[in-house]
Design a protein around this nucleic acid. Structure first.
Lengths: 361, 361
DNA sequence: TTGTATGCGTTATCAG
DNA sequence: CTGATAACGCATACAA
């Protein structure tokens, strides 16, 4: 039994002894001071800090059934979409007194499930951001405890959705106003709700503007995959592209530069997520969203669920908008951009850029 | 007592009843199957999964003193320096069976301490990345349980340091080879070990190359602060700058563009951390490091400490190197870059770029 | 190989 | 307002 603890932490009863009170009193001095005389509380607190006592939350959890922890699971921490979200969620949870477990599923549903199983007994609820698990599994989990989803539209569960539709509508309108007639959507992971949403938003908006629209899958939501589809895109007689995310757009920009296609003169490009700011060249026009807001909302939702006990079916949509920069311009007169092979410019844009960075949301 | 659990999770004794064995047997079926007959294990496991039983790790922790959790604290999750680090650390910990708590101190020592206190009884050890706490507090914590530091050089504690010296040496040599005679280091947060290291590395290398070197503090390690020091820098008769990090460099690039100073023709700029890839324009020459490696190392160090019980005084240095892109070139003939006021180019580089993103490491 | 009994640190119940 | 004590779910000596 007795583990060889290097530094046995003082327990509630150590403090009790020191303060000459019962363990119950010590407990109350921390969890419900209002039940005690102020003087008693001070006494206890005094001895507690002297001994370096800190409440053992695991033991408390065992007794109360409340852990004071939540878990946030993401498919890829390193995807720039998530850090602001994580940051906001963490801050919100912390403010409400909760600690947060972080799990990275590495885009793998099984791994996500494993993380869930490992954490489920230690937390009071989950935030699943861009979950890759099957709906069935998610619903299963939600019977055990509160779950809030981000960018996953599962009816019956509270969810925060970054509604790219408005932003994409604006993007397509922007292109239409510039006289583009035919555009391509370069898609991301099929399993991603965001991708489905974006694709159909582009399609609908294009239809409204009587534009022709085609879709090309990127192998992976990354710079490299974006660069790889360049030739395919150039063979399509389109004059503009909207991409699943900024990394794909970034790769496409590099690919176009290599082929000697001038952006935005010959071709227009619009990204999504706006995680690269203005730091691409030319500065990328992109559909932007406050992803930190998504994190904050999700945490708020989860915490209020925990505190009220009511599990709502909230469907919270977050606005997006178009940030116009320098990769969009009027459609070229000739329908198809010319394909003159050209030596790379001195700054071999992107050779070292974000290679391998994932970004499916 | 009995909390109104919405969904009372099955416990070890539920399983015991179902499988007609004792609780001890169920316990062993999960923690030490080798002590049981294969058949018994199967029986128990069967009923366990049928009931949806999952071991309560909090309870296990109470009994064994081992939580199976570690904590990683960072000053700012949204700083692109950390996500790869977090990702690697999380993966490493997960592989070893540990779950990880994530804490964001928001650059605030007190908040960091609060997080530590909240987590200390739930974890077996800490990874403190770029800790802002006083050395004293860190050492205090380390008496309670294993602590591994990242980018903080506290003797006596295991620590992983990204050794920018080599990279900075290369950077200064690079500038020297280009004929620069006088450079400025734009510094970051004074509390940061990294900043101290970088500043003195620049200073030493400059001395070796017989270059004049001055130092200018950026108000904050950010794009805006970098832009703000532009005039100061231009009044200094220097031809090159090395900045605390890429964001400051990025801001400086924008500031220089606004002032009509051509980079790299009139002025050379080198960043640190290489978190912007090639996505600035011109693509930024930067001192690069594998920050994911730092996360992996730290996690490995912590976990091996936990498993062997030996707390070493390891000081692990991680290599850095210079990635040469397009913001460095031979020094201009005239010592000082000309200061012709100019209208901003169409792409107002940086107006929307990473504003507010922090980046002190 | 398996079962019984006890303790881990805390909170809740019930008396005082 | 405070004290004694039984849980909470699990792991482990000890017994069988």
């Amino acid at each position: 039994m007795r583990p060889i603890k290097t530094n046995p932490s003082p327990t509630i009863s150590d403090v009790a002894k020191a303060a000459s009170v019962s363990t119950a009193t010590v407990s109350r001095a921390f969890s419900r001071p209002e039940m005690l005389r102020q003087e008693t509380v001070n006494q206890v607190r005094f001895h507690a800090t002297k001994l370096g006592y800190l409440p053992n939350l695991a033991a408390r959890a065992l007794s109360t059934g409340r852990q004071g922890n939540i878990a946030i699971l993401v498919p890829d921490i390193a995807n720039p979409f998530f850090p602001p979200l994580l940051r906001a969620a963490q801050a919100t949870a912390d403010f409400a007194g909760y600690s947060v477990f972080l799990g990275d599923s590495d885009e793998d549903p099984e791994r996500e499930q494993r993380l869930v199983n490992k954490l489920v007994m230690q937390v009071e609820g989950f935030i699943l951001a861009s979950s890759r698990m099957q709906n069935k599994k998610i619903l299963e989990l939600s019977e055990r405890q509160p779950v809030v989803l981000i960018n996953r539209d599962t009816p019956g569960l509270p969810r925060v959705l970054i509604d790219t539709v408005a932003g994409i509508d604006a993007a397509v309108a922007h292109l239409a106003a510039f006289g583009h007639q035919h555009l391509v959507y370069i898609s991301g992971p099929a399993a991603s709700w965001s991708d489905q949403q974006r694709r159909s938003a582009v399609s609908n908006a294009a239809a409204r503007h009587k534009m022709k629209m085609q879709s090309v899958p990127a192998r992976h939501p990354s710079f490299d995959a974006g660069r790889e589809v360049t030739s395919t895109v150039l063979n399509m007689d389109v004059t503009a592209a909207i991409t699943f995310d900024d990394f794909v757009a970034h790769g496409l920009l590099a690919g176009l530069a290599e082929q000697g296609v001038l952006v935005p003169r010959d071709f227009s490009v619009i990204g999504c997520d706006d995680v690269l700011g203005a730091s691409t060249y030319p500065a990328l026009t992109s559909v932007s969203a406050r992803c930190d807001e998504a994190g904050r909302m999700a945490a708020d939702l989860l915490i209020s669920t925990l505190q009220t006990g009511k599990r709502g079916d909230v469907r919270c949509l977050l606005e997006t908008w178009l940030v116009i920069r320098d990769t969009t311009a009027p459609a070229p007169k000739t329908g198809r951009p010319k394909l003159k092979k050209k030596v790379l410019p001195k700054n071999n844009l992107g050779d070292l850029a974000f290679t391998g960075t994932r970004s499916s949301v």
